[in-house]
Each structure stands twice: as structure tokens, then as C-alpha cells.
Design a binder for these strands. Structure first.
Lengths: 346, 346
DNA sequence: CAGCTAAATGAAAGCGTGTGCATCTTGTTC
DNA sequence: GAACAAGATGCACACGCTTTCATTTAGCTG
């Protein structure tokens, strides 16, 4: 629950600190900038008095003159999505450690992003923006975020298109999906599964497409029939219904590979509580992400882990490097995946 | 998944708009302030040109001169907690509609809040702060948030202390827990439950204490024995373990009333998957909050609904009123609860 | 101690906006 | 048409800080 202080703040200024320390206002400014040259004892004195007066440099003024707000905008359709909430959580900690703060905005839940929101957000002067939205139109970006350097999430060797080479500068976050998915298929194959279904995410999701294509490739390499298609949208309800359809209308399957963990939960619940099937005895289920709930006893889900902390670290590294080197060519970070074996395959 | 544009922004200023519209810079400023007097056709022209140039007033400059940042700080120990993530989600939408933005900070997960974080946060000039933290020390508040007007979350008629009357000004959010809890007990009693356990939240949580005291009062009124005590911390794992203890070490119970939904999930999973009991045939379970997952088939939880949207609306109303009337005496909002019947009681 | 370099310092010029005040324009009334 | 009120307009300053730039001081070498 919550305690909530609402407040207006009456703050000390650099002027007051300077007066009390018998130095110039400029010295105070320098005391808070580690790179500025200032006699060490003087700096110490200033910082002590600043602490006494509870002084911190005003970000608004600092932003105005330096052009840096130390705010990172985060645009998200739905804070409650489990994966996204965990990413926001980790990201906020990481940014906080680097002297930044998270500025949160909501967009429509259909994963689109409109001009109005971008204009609104831009008014707050974020130094950088992270959008949990796929398929953003480039013209929207360039219209509102002049000089933007996008980070492109790429899935190498997945069959899903990489960004065109002769284009504007962009940074790149590579996600290697093969390891985790291959381990998953090997496990399923080891238990004799042959009819394997892929429970997709949103139709236009590149992440889901990349997972599916990689899955198809690996299954083909291993002599398995192509995956059975199941519609989904990364959500619980759609997965629940889609699983019922698979078994009542289509011919069922030995295993379901879901585009994310929440989908896998929907499939599990449909199998157990609606279709009366046993998991893993009758059907195996594998998820993707390894969110905290995957470890809850009700689900105890075998899933492809996509290391959240590593991902956030990579993201923050990319953002900070780009802020420091605005003109350098495309930066790059790479992440991998691996299978976490629990109780839904067997 | 994500697409991420990182950016520095080259923006139009009021000066440029003024020049292009053949008006003074002041006129541009007034065009964006609905209360300022400006000829309507002139305003229209300016706004049109502003849109062409993609101009918006710079918040940093505006903040500097007006003292209003339009940022609302939100301090939270754990963004992923389901209830809190839903509240942040709803809150962000509501603030966005009012021209504000959410500035997110993380504190330690032990629900404490330290001076360092407050000082850091204050540097960003939030107009107001919402802390999802209980038991904040008043001296910390007054040290960093001079002129703060806290919002006190009160549980009237619950037996848990209301704020001392002769103190500083504060606003108040009243939460009437009786309705929902009374309906829940009536339902349990109707099914013949007599041994009812209370699965508590964090030890020092006023919310949990208020729920427990209210529960005890109502059970007493209705001639039931006092609730059996179960330790918990609002989390899944603790609830899971505590439920096992209740049945393996202590003498079990007919029903478990949990301090929140996530605890109820832990109890449910322990009952079904670890203890081999049937819910609701052998044991009933009731939660508190009605988060989205409570409606998932695996849980299908009967729970006391605490209307999130109503709560957020009340919160935002309090904050905005307080910002507009800094000197008015204590403001007040009141919320109620009610039972949502699903499948875990019977 | 002279002569040099490097570090330390303060004055002043902004950064982009809102607002009080004085001035000018418009519209209304007799 | 004159007199007045009300509204529209622009100047200049303020907000709190960072950053040149020119100047002073300290540190070092021979």
C-alpha cells in the first residue's frame, strides 16, 4: 500500500551556497562537476555546505543551458505486461545508477505510437527514448526526433530481415535465439514429441516471427515436420482460446511452443482445466522469456530464458555510449538465450 | 518486444515561430497559455505555424520560470508487483491526460525510503511525489520536501490508528474496507466455514493490519472464533510456505483469507499442488485487490475488489487540487470495496 | 629568483520561457 | 467625434545554472 506526500519544494540555490562558503557562484557549479578544475579543499568545503543547506543543482536550469535533461523517455502500451514491467523495473534501477531517471508514457495497447504522444513526450526534453512498440514508422521518428539514432533489435540468422544496409545510422541489439530454441527442440525430440505447435505472438511482431522462423529452421534440420500454426497475441486469453481450438477443431499436438511465457500460461490452463489433459504426460509446453511467474508452482514452466538483466545492461550501454558519441557509426551489442528446464516437458 | 530510438533533439524555439508569424515572441508564449489575452485569429495563426515548425514550448525553460515541472515522482520498491504495476499503468494514463508525466524511481524492496533517493529525486523538480512505501519517517519528508502536504491513507472504523489530529496539514484518502470483507465473511459463513485463517501481508503494513482488524471485528460480530494467524509478506513464496505450515504443523483451516491476491495464489498452489487438497471443496480461499490474474482460469479467485481506477482518479484529484490550492486545509477522498465472487469459495 | 607552464578563478554572456508593467488599439457610449 | 474602459501588445527582467574567456595564482625548473 501507499503513503503519499504531495509537495512544492523551496530549495536552496547555488547563490546561497556560494555566499555561505565565501566563494563565487561559479565555484559552486564547478564543485558539482567532477571534470571542472577546482582546488580540492575548496570543493570539499562547498560540498559540505551544500549538504548542510540541502542543496542540489537545479535540473531544469542545468537542462536549459546544457541541453541534457538526464531523462530517458519510456513509451509502453501496457505497464502490467509481465515482461515489460520487469524490464521497466530493471531499467529504472540501471538508469538511476547512471544519474538518469525514467520518464514513463503510455500509448495505445495496439502497439502503435502516434504523433501526438511523441510531440507531448518531446516537450519534456528526454535525452533518449525507449519505445516498447514494434513497427514504428520511420517518418514519425524523423519528424519528432530529429537527429535520432534508432536502436534496431535484430535477430541474426533467424530468417527475419535485418535492416537495409545503405540507410541512416542506427545502433543494433542482436539477439541470438538459436541456442535456447535448439535446446528446447532437442528436449522435446528426446521425449518423442513429433507434432509440435507454435503459439504465435501478435501477427506483426518481428520478435514472434523471428522465433517462429528459427523454430521452423531447426525443426527442419532435425527432420521434424513443420510446426502447427496457432494464432495468439502474447496474451493469456487468446492463448487459452487458441489452445482449445487446436484440440477441439484441429487435431491436437504433442507439444506447444509459445511465443512468450504468458501465452504458455494460457495454453497450460486450457489444457489442464478446460480440455482435461495432463501436462507434461499428455502434452508438453514450452514458453519464452522466463518471467518470475514461470517459477510459480502452478505453472513451473520450462522456458527459453532471455536474460533480462543482460538485456537491460546492453540497452543502457548503447544509450549512454550514443549520448557520449553522437556521431560515431553504428554501435552494437549481442545477447544470447538458453533453455531453463522445469516441469512442463516430459 | 522493442524498437528503440535514441535521440538528441534539435528544436524550434518561440523566437523562430514569432519571426515566421510576424508577431512578437511574447505572443507565441501567450498563444500556448489559454488564460493569456491574445486576439483569436492571431492565436490561431501562431498555433498553425507552431505545428508546421513542430514547435512546443520547452518544459525546462518553463519549469525554470514558473516553478512547475509537470513531473510527478513515483517511488516504488518493485515495479513488477502486480498491483503496483497496474496502479502505475493507470496512474500514468491519468497524469498524461492532465498534462503531467510520471517520473519513476526505485527504492529498496524492504519498503524503506532513504534520504539519498529523495535528494536525487528532488533534483528533477517533481511537482508532487507518490511513494508506494509505508511508514516513511516524517523527518525525512520535511527535510527534503519542504512545504510537503502528505496524503494519508486512512482506514476508517478499522481499528487501525488514524493520524493524530493536532499535526501538520495533510490530505486524506479514506478506504472503507468493511463492505467487501463483510460480504466475504457472509459468503464463507453461508458455506459453513468456521475455522478461518488470515494470511497477513508484511508485518508493519498498515494496509494488512487494517484488513486483519476489520476481519477480526466482523468475525466477532457474527459469532465466529478469531482468525487463525498466518505470516506472510504480500508475496507468493511466503504465502506458499505459510500455507504448508498451517496444514502440516498447525491444524489446518476451512478457509484462508489472504491480504492480497498474490498471497492467495501462493496459498492456492500450496493447497492444490503440495498438500493435495481441493479448492473450494476442502478449503476456500479469498484474496484482496482483484488484479487481472485473479480472473485467469488457473486461479479463478474470489476476491475483495478494490477499484483501481477509482483509486487512481481519487489520487490524481487530490494531487491536482493540492497543486492548485497549496494553502487549503486537508482535502479528502473516499473509496469503497466489494466482493467479486469466482470459484474458490464453496 | 626569474621564467615559464598549468591550474584556478570570476565576470559576463547566454539557455528559452513566463510575467509585470507601461503603452497602444479597439470597441462602446454619450 | 470625444471620452473612456477593456483588451491586446511588447519591452525588459527574472528563473538557476553552465560555459567561454581573460585574468590571476600556484607549481615547477634551471
Amino acid at each position: 500500500m501507499t503513503e503519499i506526500p504531495a509537495t512544492r519544494m523551496a530549495r536552496a540555490t547555488a547563490e546561497m551556497v556560494a555566499e555561505r562558503a565565501n566563494v563565487s557562484r561559479v565555484a559552486v557549479s564547478r564543485a558539482f562537476n567532477p571534470n571542472a578544475s577546482l582546488r580540492p579543499d575548496k570543493r570539499e568545503l562547498i560540498l559540505r555546505i551544500a549538504r548542510e543547506l540541502n542543496y542540489f543543482p537545479d535540473r531544469a536550469a542545468r537542462t536549459l543551458v546544457s541541453g541534457r535533461s538526464h531523462l530517458i523517455g519510456v513509451i509502453v502500451p501496457d505497464v502490467c505486461s509481465y515482461w515489460e514491467s520487469q524490464e521497466i523495473d530493471t531499467l529504472t534501477s540501471a538508469l538511476q545508477n547512471e544519474g538518469f531517471a525514467t520518464l514513463l508514457f503510455k500509448t495505445r495497447t495496439d502497439y502503435s505510437m502516434d504523433e501526438q504522444l511523441l510531440a507531448y513526450m518531446r516537450g519534456f526534453n528526454p535525452d533518449s527514448v525507449i519505445a516498447f512498440v514494434e513497427n514504428v514508422k520511420p517518418q514519425i521518428l524523423t519528424r519528432f526526433l530529429d537527429r535520432a539514432v534508432p536502436i534496431y533489435v535484430d535477430y541474426p540468422h533467424s530468417g527475419v530481415a535485418s535492416p537495409a544496409e545503405p540507410g541512416p545510422v542506427f545502433d543494433r541489439l542482436n539477439i541470438l535465439q538459436r541456442d535456447g530454441i535448439e535446446q528446447a527442440i532437442a528436449l522435446l525430440q528426446g521425449f518423442g514429441a513429433s507434432r509440435i505447435a507454435y503459439l504465435a505472438g501478435k501477427t506483426k511482431s518481428r520478435a514472434s516471427a523471428a522465433r517462429e522462423t528459427m523454430l521452423r529452421t531447426i525443426m527442419n534440420e532435425r527432420g521434424l515436420a513443420p510446426p502447427i500454426q496457432m494464432a495468439g497475441d502474447f496474451g493469456y486469453e487468446a492463448a487459452f482460446q487458441s489452445t482449445i481450438d487446436l484440440f477441439k477443431v484441429a487435431g491436437g499436438a504433442d507439444a506447444i511452443f509459445a511465443a512468450n511465457d504468458v501465452s504458455a500460461f494460457g495454453a497450460l490452463d486450457a489444457l489442464r482445466h478446460e480440455l482435461g489433459l495432463r501436462v507434461p504426460q499428455d502434452v508438453s509446453v514450452i514458453g519464452f522469456d522466463d518471467i518470475a511467474q514461470a517459477n510459480w508452482k502452478s505453472y513451473n514452466l520450462t522456458t527459453v530464458k532471455f536474460d533480462l538483466e543482460a538485456r537491460v545492461r546492453a540497452l543502457v550501454r548503447l544509450i549512454l555510449r550514443r549520448l557520449n558519441e553522437p556521431d560515431s557509426p553504428g554501435l552494437e551489442e549481442t545477447l544470447s538465450t538458453r533453455l531453463v528446464v522445469r516441469g512442463t516437458v516430459g
